[in-house]
């Protein structure tokens, strides 16, 4: 499946703000992203599929949008 990725904050500095990757589910997407951007392995970020944060693996559909959201700490 072709999945649109939108990245935020420090994650976007690694991956670019918007990219497209092939993946069938959230776990395989994370693996693919880590292969493309090895530094992601050490980062914490939330994953949201079509704007909903997911905590477990989820099947992805063609043209799903996945957001990679790191925590911000500044104040």
């Amino acid at each position: 499946m072709e999945i649109k990725i939108i990245a935020f904050g420090s994650i976007a500095e690694l991956t670019g703000k918007e990219i497209t990757v092939q993946a069938s589910d959230v776990d395989s997407l994370k693996v693919t992203l880590q292969e493309l951007f090895p530094e992601l392995a050490d980062r914490k970020y939330a994953v949201a599929v079509n704007m909903k944060v997911v905590q477990e693996n989820l099947e992805l559909k063609q043209n799903d949008t996945v957001a990679l959201m790191p925590p911000y700490s500044g104040g």
């Binding site: 904050g9 420090s10 925590p71 911000y72 500044g74 104040g75």
Partner: peptide
């Protein structure tokens, strides 16, 4: 909750 990072905020 509120937090900022460079040009972005939550």
């Amino acid at each position: 909750f509120g937090a900022v990072y460079q040009y972005e905020g939550q």
